[in-house]
């Protein structure tokens, strides 16, 4: 009888639409989110193919063509569709290559912060009270510092570079994952399915990663999307302050910092990199809102 029951359950599971399809169904409801998703896809494609689609090398200097405006303005030149910067480098090529750095920063920071944060959060949720308290106080300490300030100071210790900026941002963003994971773990631990798994003899590792973790993932995925955009913003801010990627790297924040003194003479060297940051971050945040609505009805922003 037991066997028959489980079989019945199995067929029921098969009849349900696939998880991904169900997710897409809800995600599609939010038009802004879908819009953001396609922009993000475009961003990823640009990041992947930048060296091949960019018309020039992003660091090559065409000295005789410095500060050429975009083509639609007087004095524009078709070989530099979005103009050139003060050193005669092609803006379009630099912007396209900049997408690589932002994407790279986003991915690395989210992967490092999320994996570390999830591990610590699971540990805190499952461990005895003293270890839980210890981990959470450590996270409180990190959260007491304004994120950008802590990142700045960490970079000052490690030395300014894009890698160190990523490490710093990942450290700063990690506590959010710890808190989120711990809160969901504690919420799940009291439920019957966890107790039954425990009674059935599931070991600690199995309980952590197979039984509980999948049920805690929804808010973590939403957080991942949001911290992807935070990572891009913070890395650009550090670059802007001279503490991130160093010139001549075509990172968007660094480009802005280099262009600062030309703001009143050449609008395009300032406007375009910032616009690139804004559009990317906006697209990811739109997607994040949609993810939240689709994955986590509890958090639904009505």
């Amino acid at each position: 009888m037991d066997h028959a029951l489980s079989k019945e359950v199995e067929t029921q599971v098969e009849q349900r639409p696939g998880r991904l399809r169900e997710f897409w169904f809800y995600f599609r409801e939010n038009r802004g989110a879908v819009f953001g998703f396609w922009i993000f896809v475009a961003f990823v494609i640009v990041a992947a193919t930048a060296p091949w689609i960019a018309p020039h090398d992003p660091t090559q200097q065409f000295r005789e063509f410095a500060l050429i405006p975009p083509v639609w303005q007087e004095g524009g030149n078709w070989s530099f569709p979005l103009g050139t910067d003060p050193l005669g480098r092609d803006m379009l090529s630099r912007l396209l290559n900049g997408a690589r750095y932002s994407f790279f920063v986003g991915i690395v920071v989210v992967v490092v912060a999320a994996s570390g944060g999830i591990l610590l959060g699971l540990l805190a949720g499952f461990s005895p009270k003293w270890l839980d308290a210890l981990i959470m106080r450590l996270m409180d300490i990190i959260l007491a510092f304004p994120s950008l300030l802590l990142a700045l100071v960490l970079v000052a210790i490690l030395g300014p570079s894009l890698t160190n900026a990523m490490i710093a941002i990942a450290i700063v963003l990690q506590p959010h994952y710890v808190r989120l994971t711990r809160a969901s773990v504690i919420g799940e631990l009291g439920k019957d399915y966890v107790t039954s798994a425990r009674v059935a003899g599931a070991g600690l590792w199995r309980l952590m990663f197979v039984t509980v973790l999948p049920n805690c993932l929804a808010p973590i995925i939403v957080q991942a999307a949001l911290s992807f955009s935070t990572a891009i913003l913070d890395a650009a801010a550090l670059g802007f302050l001279g503490m991130g990627a160093q010139p001549p790297t075509p990172e968007w924040g660094t480009m802005l910092a280099e262009a600062r003194e030309f703001i009143l003479r050449a609008w395009w060297v300032v406007t375009l990199p910032g616009l690139a940051i804004l559009i990317t971050v906006l697209a990811i945040n739109l997607m994040g809102d949609g993810l939240r609505d689709a994955l986590d009805p509890k958090l639904k922003r009505s």
């Binding site: 600062r260 009143l264 910032g274 906006l282 945040n285």
Partner: peptide, 25 residues
């Protein structure tokens, strides 16, 4: 809410430069 989301996604260092271009420059 669209405006709010744009504000939320704003790189404020760039926003500052834009405002300087328009209102000061």
């Amino acid at each position: 809410m669209s405006t709010a989301l744009i504000g939320y996604s704003m790189p404020i260092f760039w926003w500052a430069l834009l405002l300087i271009i328009v209102f000061s420059g």
